[in-house]
Simulated scan of single mutants.
Amino acid sequence: MANPRTPNPARRNERSRRAVLDAARDLVSELGYAKVTIEAIAARAGVGKQTIYRWWPSKGAVIFDSFLALSEGGEGVRLPDTGDLEADLKMVMRATVAEFADPAFEAPVRALNMEIIGDPTLAAMYGEKLAGPVDEAKKERLRSGRRAGQLAADADLDLVLEVLYAPLYQRWLLRSGPLTPEYADALVETTLRAFRPE
């Protein structure tokens, strides 16, 4: 029979878990990824360092989970489907632009993106756990639009997403222009013109 006092790493105190994830995200915003340590996360969260290591294998895993929590992991994500593809995409893109313009979201996401560029393992984890599921939800909405005749029947859905999102990412990454609702609408309108049915 197991000793009831032995910690079970599968069981996490939710309040401590949230404190660790919030601390990790805040510290990345304040210090940048490279300067964040497990010790600093533990101190900010008010937990022991061993608590973190019991739940996560590395600093990168903690920080990545903090972003999954912020974005709710992408699992079960569904885009709105009112029957009007343009209106639905504008709603999603306006929300995305607002998120990227929000300093509380922008700073840690910028830090994470810099790490993804140089860390193939983190990039694969990001693709599998966050970007992949979210992109699949986006493609499902595009398929619905295609079935409704609002998108060309032969439209390459990966390319549609690249045309829709790449300008936003470039503007955000290079800080080359404002992120406004009008900009979000223009991206949707331009993309749908490019992929409209014959």
Rank of each mutant, 00 (worst) to 15 (best):
P133K: 09
R143W: 07
T96W: 07
I63P: 01
D84M: 02
G132I: 09
D102I: 00
A104M: 14
F64Q: 04
A61E: 14
L159V: 15
I52V: 14
A153M: 06
R146T: 02
E162F: 15
K59V: 04
A123F: 13
D88C: 11
V62H: 00
K59I: 02
E75V: 11
L70M: 13
P57C: 00
D158F: 01
V77H: 13
G118S: 15
P80L: 10
D135P: 00
L70V: 09
G83A: 04
E140P: 02
K139E: 13
E136V: 13
L142I: 11
D154P: 02
E72P: 00
A111T: 03
G48K: 02
G127L: 10
P57R: 00
P133F: 12
L79S: 04
V77R: 12
V97W: 02
A40L: 12
E106R: 15
Q50Y: 06
D65Y: 01
I117R: 13
V97I: 12
G145D: 02
A137C: 06
G60S: 13
A104D: 15
T96N: 07
E106I: 00
D158T: 02
Q50F: 05
M125L: 14
W56H: 14
S71T: 07
E106K: 12
K138F: 15
Q50V: 15
I116C: 01
S71D: 05
M93E: 09
N113V: 06
W56F: 15
I41C: 07
L142M: 08
D88S: 10
A45S: 01
W56D: 13
G83C: 05
S58H: 11
I63S: 03
E106Q: 14
I116E: 00
A98H: 05
A40M: 07
A95K: 11
A131L: 10
T96F: 12
I52M: 08
L159D: 13
L122G: 04
L142P: 08
Q50N: 15
E140W: 10
Q50M: 14
I52Y: 03
K49V: 08
L122M: 10
L85T: 05
G60E: 15
E75T: 14
E128I: 10
G74F: 03
P103W: 05
A131F: 05
A137V: 10
A153N: 09
A98Q: 09
K139D: 09
I116G: 01
V160F: 10
V77Y: 15
P80G: 07
E39Y: 09
W55H: 15
L157M: 07
G74A: 08
G132Y: 12
S144R: 10
M93C: 08
T82I: 06
T96V: 11
V62F: 04
Y53L: 12
R143T: 08
Q50P: 05
G60C: 09
D156M: 09
A40Y: 01
G127V: 08
E140S: 14
A131H: 05
S58V: 07
K138S: 14
R44N: 03
S58C: 06
G127H: 10
P120H: 12
A69L: 00
L142Y: 08
R44Y: 06
P57W: 00
A69N: 09
E106F: 06
G74S: 09
A137Q: 05
M93G: 03
E72G: 02
D135A: 14
R146M: 12
S144D: 04
A42R: 01
A137F: 02
A40H: 04
L151I: 04
V160W: 08
A123Y: 11
R94I: 13
A123V: 01
